[in-house]
Design a protein around this nucleic acid. Structure first.
Length: 530
DNA sequence: GGTTACGTATGTTCGGC
DNA sequence: CGAACATACGTA
């Protein structure tokens, strides 16, 4: 299959593009065959390279999921007749294919976004911005340095992760009117569970910053006898929705201890900043209201995050490397510097490694509202949090089902408590509860749970576990194969395409029903325990 | 033939007091 | 009356 240029370009550039796409196809073929042993990836055999545009996000995800392998969804703003805003479209390709094609586009046509998939492991990232007009005396570069320092102190305090400005890829899209940057943290062997968790962490540390700044402002107004309204009033009520780093099973007692600990941590972090530094992160937005210059709105599901070298449709300020960026990608003999930067700029481009640390940060009270409705006993935060983790279906429901089916013995049935999906790596890590058979010790563990890893690339799964002994040996059970009907490649045939919507709707409906059932079961379980 | 997700504002329903 | 839920609209 060749790259379809028709949907993506006007008729004009088609000839040129045809040549490019031919070269591309060849490169890609070579790349793929180098990377992947043939017998492991029957579905990738042959000339076919996943590449397709869609009008709907859902269709793009379905396609990428079915073809699996290393495909990712991007979006872009395509020109449409008589519209000053581009029509958003979706595009599925692997990272190398995407780059080879994207890099050759006219600057003007680079209006592309990464789709940070719901539930896939991701980097810590930030969007920093303020209108220059309302912040004449602000120096964005200095503010960014302070902000990075602020974030890294918290990373150290909460996760014991060490990092500094050298680990932060800084991209700039500033104009005369607006300061605008993206920060993408390049942490070795460390990633967030997904962008919601990353967002929880960000919101938590920004909340602490707001509280601290309000204290400073209050002192200031007391001294000066001013009665200024307190800064960022809208979010002040969120102080009742305290956030806590994800610690499983917090009862309310533990929770308040946790909060004390947090307050202690907060002052430990805050003490390392001068008042001036803290206050420097406050700006006025375009309505001239005070706010932080870090945008909190970029941590939503399936968030579109503008790509390196891309601009908003019709604008002329692409994201380029900031002049004060200190991050240098590790040298590579094959890939160009730009290519390396592109790869590192991708938020969900995380390579799986057994040593990868996955950071979680849950809002403890996030779900308690839903459970409450009268029964105060039933809504302790810890339990709510337990329920939150792990019942959403992974991007591969067929594999979920297969994995679940392997957890049954005559006496008991385990279940998937949690999954972690590696967007790049064609790998799903399942945390299992209720079934602890470990191939290493050839019996069940007494107190540690096991995990199952599904390697979609090779079509196999194997078992590892949380037991310290097994972990120390980095024990991994022999591979077992996943039946082909559970693998995405089973649906590889193009003729399935026309059934897309029907199948998806059913899937969604079933998943929804299943999920409700799971929630109900778990609520009941927890009620039983109390 | 064709966006998506979410915050905010505003409207509506419902049950307790 | 207010909480909970529904609908509409604007924004990126």
């Amino acid at each position: 299959m060749s790259v379809t240029t028709n949907n993506f370009y006007g008729a004009k550039g088609r000839r040129k593009i045809y040549h490019i796409s031919k070269v591309l196809d060849e490169n890609v073929k070579k790349l793929k065959s180098d990377k992947i042993p043939k017998d492991f990836r029957p579905r990738i055999d042959g000339p076919s390279v996943g590449w397709k545009t869609f009008f709907r996000q859902q269709e793009a995800f379905s396609y990428a999921r079915r073809k699996s392998s290393d495909l990712h969804v991007f979006s872009f703003e395509s020109e449409s007749l008589g519209s000053e805003t581009g029509q958003r479209m979706f595009l599925v390709a692997s990272y190398p294919v995407f780059w080879h094609y994207y890099r050759q586009l006219d600057q003007q046509k680079k209006t592309h976004y990464e789709l940070i998939p719901e539930g896939s492991v991701c980097k810590l990232y930030f969007d920093l911005e303020f209108p220059k007009e309302n912040n004449r005396n602000c120096d964005g570069s200095t503010m960014t340095d302070i902000f990075i320092k602020y974030v890294t102190r918290w990373m150290e305090e909460i996760f014991k992760v060490q990092c500094s400005k050298e680990h932060v890829l800084s991209l700039d899209a500033s104009t005369e009117k607006k300061f605008s940057r993206h920060l993408i943290f390049q942490l070795k062997k460390t990633a967030f569970q997904d962008n919601i968790h990353a967002g929880n962490f960000v919101k938590f540390i920004l909340q602490k910053l707001k509280v601290e700044i309000n204290k400073l402002k209050k002192n200031l107004s007391d001294v000066l006898d001013f009665d200024e309204t307190s800064f960022i009033s809208k979010s002040d009520n969120s102080s009742d929705e305290q956030t806590v780093p994800c610690v499983n099973r917090l009862d309310s007692q533990r929770r308040s201890q946790e909060q004390d600990k947090n307050n202690h941590k907060a002052s430990k972090v805050m003490d390392r900043f001068t008042e001036e530094e803290l206050l420097s992160m406050v700006v006025r937005n375009k309505n001239n209201e005070e706010t932080l210059f870090c945008d909190q709105g970029v941590y939503t599901k399936n968030r579109n995050f503008r790509l390196y070298q891309s601009r908003k449709f019709g604008k002329s300020n692409p994201l380029v490397i900031s002049e004060d960026n200190l991050y240098i990608p590790p040298k590579d003999e094959v890939m160009s510097y730009e290519h390396l930067i592109f790869n590192d700029s991708l938020i969900a481009n995380i390579e799986y490694s057994p040593a990868l640390r996955i950071l979680q940060f849950a809002l403890v009270c996030q779900f308690s509202n839903r459970l409450s409705s009268g029964n105060v006993e039933a809504k302790t935060c810890g339990k709510a949090e337990d329920i939150v983790e792990g019942f959403t279906k992974s991007p591969y429901p067929e594999i979920d089902n297969f994995i679940s089916s392997t957890l049954k013995t005559d006496s008991k049935a385990g279940r998937i408590r949690h999954w972690t999906y590696f967007s790049q790596g064609e790998l799903i890590v399942y945390d299992i509860v209720g079934y602890r058979y470990c191939h290493n010790i050839e019996r069940e563990h007494k107190s540690n749970n096991i995990m199952l890893l599904a390697d979609l690339k090779r079509g196999v799964y194997y078992q590892k576990c949380h037991d310290p002994e097994c972990k120390y040996l980095s024990y991994k059970s022999p591979d077992k194969s996943i039946p082909k009907e559970a693998l995405p490649s089973f649906y590889f045939d193009e003729s399935f395409d026309e059934f897309d919507e029907g199948v998806d709707d059913m899937d969604i409906l079933n998943a929804a029903l299943e999920m409700e059932k799971t929630i109900d079961d778990r609520i009941n379980e927890n009620m039983d325990k109390t």
